[in-house]
Design a protein around this nucleic acid. Structure first.
Length: 665
RNA sequence: GGUGGCUUAGCUCAGUUGGUUAGAGCAACGGAAUCAUAAUCCGUGGGUCCGGGGUUCGAGUCCCUGAGCCACUACCA
């Protein structure tokens, strides 16, 4: 077989949070694939890095009173430790905030110069917040139709416009009127790559993904804004002080940066992988970042004269017990919490059992997790070694004999599966590989039972030795097939047989007439209490992990005079009718009594309140707000509520005694 | 509402381009075994393949339609 040269990446974890078992689906899927390729004798390099730039890192560091550099250093230490403890073996784990990466960003943007251009963008700028306001952060009146309080780029009637054309614009955060400020932004022109992408996508992504991408490719490919003005934590663009590369530019370039760092350390050239016909490049990613990896990224590489990915492998998300990971249910499990209670092999084995080559979500049912591991990995697989090796060591001097006639077929059957299993690994159909492996273990257990060596050892020890020799050779074959999934476990197997690290071809050898080492315990069952401890610890874990910070406390708005305040007419209202708007995800249609007058109000509180729970309640509404025409009718007021939105919304209630229609002042 | 995806045994999942009687593991039940850190083996039961229609000699598989769930997206004045 010719040796392939393969570069593999996993998506870069953001330096603003801990690794959790959802992330691990990807890193374990990738690690298994890489280990498999290495066992096959190919040159396969696995690189990754912390993704360190962008606004959230900047804000978080500010909150913690440390520099962004200190923040990402902490994250780096934590992430690399978690990965190492899960037996994830990177050839290099870097950081996007490295000098290598900065140099590459500059080189690549220079190489792409024909495809990029600086265009002045007049953008809203908030002096209070000292930042440019993205479209969504500006609200105002539509210049085309006069609708009030619209987003910065389009209104509900479908008119589109520039944020700067908006009448009465206001910063969505602090409410002050933004000024207009012009800044140059760097744009990457994607449209010229349409033909390339049309051709590239189908052969380099999974079918499902290609279908989805076709939607995008059928539409307009707008230029991509790839710079951000300061303040921004990232790489400043050469020759453009105060301008930074957008985080989604330097993140994927981080793949190259990590390769370059590795190459330098090893005395190699990163171009062997990134500017060569001979090498293959594979990106493992989650389905949430398909867009960046299959449109912008290949186009960027193409434009800058680099190799484009051989394939982008997309996987689904992890659910736990059939639903999204949840902090309150204790299923938001960090890598560290898991490791505090269980060894990495169990999760590696379980994910391997569940993973296929598609983009479907996988579910980790904790009950199933325990059963699957205990019955397959311990009961079936490890038991083969345990019952064979212990008897041989204790009662037959630990000496393997020859494979007897009754064992040749069994062993040959196990060995013959090598290419089938290899094909499954190659196609990332790990669950199918595991099924094969489990079948081998079953056949070995069956053989052991049929031959009854525990009986024959008394009358014909050499017959028993032959059975043990067969069973242990079969087990050894299983271990070789399992090595990409369970590297730590298989190291113990290599020690048991006193051998060098296995390659895929090792499965074709037969061990006869030689000694084995004393059997050491390979794996224990998962105890229920370990799972309970994990759940309990996850429930109590600090609420730090995933998305942005926590509760955002907005700055107090600018002072208003009493007269100005009195312009807002707040009234006690009684909700007399409430119904869900079928076609909307978040909206309820309320009818409120304002003391003799009934109004219809459309409120975005569907996810937080059931209509029937609202009927009869008193609450507070803005009564003199201009009516707003929506898709589902006119909303004649606004119900006041606090909270982050979604299900996290709390509407206001007056104390007992308030009457509908009374003014609040 | 739009787009894409999913729905097969109590649980987790296989089911090639349509082709005998729809499979596996776990769980359940019955039995055997006692070498193995309670681990094994044999057997049994268990299914409206989400519902409805259609194409076909033949549909879990293809087409239409409905429902439920998931993701992205729109609606929060």
């Amino acid at each position: 077989m010719t040796q392939r040269k393969i570069l593999v990446t996993s998506a870069l974890p953001y330096a603003n949070g801990s690794i959790h078992i959802g992330h691990l689906v990807e890193y374990l899927q990738t690690d298994i694939w890489v280990r498999f390729q290495k066992m096959r004798g190919h040159e396969c390099r696995y690189v990754c890095a912390d993704d360190t730039h962008g606004t959230p890192i900047m804000i978080r560091a500010r909150q913690e009173g440390i520099t962004p550099e200190a923040l990402i250093a902490n994250s780096y230490a934590e992430h690399t430790q978690d990965f190492a403890d899960f037996e994830i073996a990177f050839d290099n784990y870097s950081s996007t905030n490295s000098e290598h990466n900065r140099v590459l960003c500059n080189e690549i943007s220079a190489a792409m110069a024909d495809h990029t251009e600086w265009l002045p963008v007049e953008q809203a700028y908030c002096d209070t917040c000292s930042m440019f306001l993205p479209d969504r952060f500006v609200r105002g009146t539509c210049p085309a139709c006069g609708l009030q309080d619209q987003y910065g780029d389009s209104c509900d009637n479908g008119d589109t416009y520039q944020p700067t054309e908006l009448l009465d614009p206001a910063c969505a955060t602090c409410g002050t009127a933004p000024s207009r400020k012009s800044a140059d932004h760097l744009f990457f022109k994607l449209e010229p790559f349409r033909a390339f992408l049309q051709e590239w996508v189908p052969g380099h992504t999974q079918q499902e993904i290609a279908n989805k991408l076709q939607e995008w490719l059928d539409g307009e490919l707008r230029p991509w804004d790839i710079s951000r003005p300061e303040p921004y934590f990232g790489f400043e663009i050469p020759g453009h002080p105060g301008q930074y590369f957008y985080v989604w530019v330097d993140a994927p370039i981080g793949y190259i940066g990590a390769t370059r760092e590795w190459a330098e350390r090893e005395g190699r050239d990163y171009k062997e992988f990134w500017q060569s016909e001979d090498a293959e490049i594979y990106h493992f990613i989650g389905k949430d970042i398909v867009y960046f990896h299959t449109l912008f990224w290949p186009a960027m590489l193409k434009g800058a004269g680099y190799s484009t990915p051989s394939s982008v492998f997309v996987h689904g998300f992890l659910t736990v017990n059939g639903e999204k990971m949840s902090k309150s249910k204790g299923t938001f499990i960090s890598a560290r919490t898991y490791l505090d209670n269980l060894g990495p092999m169990y999760l590696r084995y379980y994910y391997a059992c569940k993973l296929g080559g598609g983009v479907e979500d996988i579910d980790m049912n904790l009950d199933d997790f325990i059963k699957r591991v205990n019955s397959d990995l311990i009961g079936k697989i490890t038991n083969v070694a345990s019952r064979g090796a212990q008897m041989l060591y204790k009662r037959l001097d630990g000496q393997l004999g020859s494979i007897p006639k009754n064992g040749t077929q069994l062993l040959r059957d196990a060995q013959c599966r090598a290419e089938t299993i290899a094909a499954h690994y190659e196609a990332r159909e790990y669950s199918k590989a595991i099924v094969q492996i489990r079948e081998i273990a079953e056949s070995a257990n069956r053989y052991f039972d049929e031959q009854q060596p525990w009986v024959t050892i008394k009358s014909d020890p050499e017959a028993a030795r032959g059975v043990m020799t067969t069973v242990l050779n079969v087990f050894r074959t299983i271990a070789i097939y399992l090595k990409p999934v369970l590297p730590g476990y298989v190291e113990k197997v290599e020690a048991l047989f006193i051998e060098e690290p296995y390659s895929w071809d090792s499965a074709q050898q037969t061990l006869e007439n030689r000694a084995i080492a004393a059997y050491t315990h390979l794996a224990s069952r998962i105890e229920h209490k370990a799972i309970e401890a994990i759940i309990e610890a996850s429930r109590q874990a600090p609420l730090e992990p995933e998305p942005e910070p926590e509760v955002k406390i907005e700055p107090i708005a600018d002072e208003v005079s009493f007269d100005e305040f009195m312009k807002v007419d707040l009234r006690v209202a009684k909700i007399v009718k409430a119904e869900a708007i079928e076609k909307a995800n978040k909206l309820l249609r309320l009818t409120v009594d304002l003391g003799g007058e009934e109004r219809q109000i459309i409120a975005g509180i569907k996810q937080a309140y059931k209509p029937e729970d609202l009927v009869g309640r008193l609450t507070v509404v803005v009564a003199n707000l201009a009516p707003r025409t929506m898709k589902f009718g006119v909303s004649e007021g606004m119900v006041l509520a606090a909270g982050e939105g979604g299900a996290e919304l709390m509407i206001l209630s007056p104390d007992d005694g308030a009457k509908p229609g009374q003014r609040i002042s």
